[in-house]
């Protein structure tokens, strides 16, 4: 080994990463297994089985799955339309720029935008009532609900998907499609046997990222609903602020639960990818 003192060059990075990423996370993980006296315990984790906490995890996971799945689907459709769907080529640049903007347009302003659009006096709500006589709130729609939040999250999920998947779609070579076609494959067979398997790692990665993205999102939901919708990040937010729960170690356990959920999502991605990529270098 002639690395010698070379590691000194990356020392600042590792110090930073340890102090502001690794140690804080470790602190939470360890805290989840300790009681206030610093002794080992599983009581905090057991506290997660309280019905309202289980419910909050359930609804969070459902929202994240739904917004990730729909985000992947719609984002993929839009990216595919632009890359290979035969629409004019000039559409691509504005779509990519817009996706860059919209994928970062999360948080508080996004909530405002959807309140102004689909809230009780929002533009679309009003227009639907005036023009078509459809009262979506009377029909059971509520922005502060599972579907309302999912619909809102899609505003940054779809563009994120477009940004991730467009380069992968562009990596599909024309010769693969032509070779499949000339060998007698239909368009469906080409997608099922060639294109989708090649895209599979990218699709999985995008799904895992989109899932984590919406699972950890606090600002949009908080600005939209206050603390009325009990998804996990909102509960944890309230807990850290000391508004609701008084047991700090339950907070540790909830944060640990969040890490476990996003960890599982990403672990699943890594495992499935390594299996899908056996044909890669």
């Amino acid at each position: 080994m002639r690395t010698g003192w070379n590691w000194l060059g990356v020392l600042p990075f590792f110090v930073f990463a340890v102090l502001f990423l690794v140690l804080p996370t470790m602190n939470i993980v360890i805290g989840a297994f300790r009681n206030p006296q610093g002794e080992f315990t599983l009581a905090n984790l057991a506290g997660l089985s309280a019905p309202r906490i289980v419910d909050s995890f359930a609804i969070s996971i459902r929202i994240s799955l739904a917004s990730a799945a729909l985000g992947c689907l719609v984002g993929f459709a839009m990216a595919a339309a632009v890359v290979m769907g035969g629409v004019p080529a000039w559409l691509k640049a504005p779509l990519m720029t817009f996706s860059g903007v919209a994928s970062n347009f999360a948080g508080v302003p996004l909530a405002f935008a959807f309140i102004a659009t689909l809230g009780r006096v929002g533009l679309v709500t009003m227009l639907l009532r005036q023009w078509f006589g459809i009262n979506i709130y009377a029909m059971g729609f509520n922005l502060l609900s599972f579907w309302g939040l999912t619909l809102t999250y899609l505003f940054f999920q779809i563009p994120l998907m477009i940004l991730i998947i467009t380069p992968a779609l562009e990596g599909l070579r024309r010769e693969w499609r032509e070779a499949a076609e000339v060998l007698g494959a239909s368009t469906g067979q080409y997608w099922r046997m060639v294109a989708l398997p090649i895209l599979f790692p990218s699709l999985l990665g995008a799904f895992a990222l989109l899932f984590a993205n919406s699972f950890g999102a606090v600002a949009t939901a908080y600005a939209l609903t206050g603390s009325s919708l009990s998804i996990v990040p909102i509960m944890l937010f309230a807990q850290i602020r000391g508004d609701v729960l008084q047991d700090p170690h339950l907070g540790y356990a909830m944060a640990f639960g969040m890490i476990v959920v996003t960890g599982i999502a990403n672990l699943a991605y890594v495992i499935m990818r390594s299996r899908a990529e056996r044909w890669m270098r």
């Binding site: 010769e175 693969w176 032509e178 890669m280």
Partner: peptide, 12 residues
């Protein structure tokens, strides 16, 4: 048909 830049399917 055989293509210029070996268009073998990389996943197969």
């Amino acid at each position: 048909m055989v293509f210029q830049a070996y268009a073998l399917f990389p996943n197969l």
